[in-house]
Amino acid sequence: MVHVYKGSLIECDPPTKQFVLWISKQEHFDVIDIDETHLFLQGGDERSMNAIQRRLDELQNENTYSVFDKDVDK
């Protein structure tokens, strides 16, 4: 019996994929692992996509050092 899932395909690089997998456990949405660079987000609604994007942005910000944006970050 073939299983059918509706949602969205996420394509990204391997580290980002691992990060999304980690988020999915915390934010409680289901993903199906396809291969190194692809994930399938079940039920892909706006909420989960925004959540992923938001967490990703936070991660980027944490790992960037910027001299002139010091006053903005702190």
């Binding site: 019996m1 059918v4 949602g7 395909l9 996420i10 980002t16 999304v20 199906i32 399938f40």
Partner: peptide, 18 residues
Amino acid sequence: AERNRIGYTKSVLYNSFP
């Protein structure tokens, strides 16, 4: 590009083919 690390495509997935 930093903001576009992930590409989304609305789609349907099939697995567990007999």
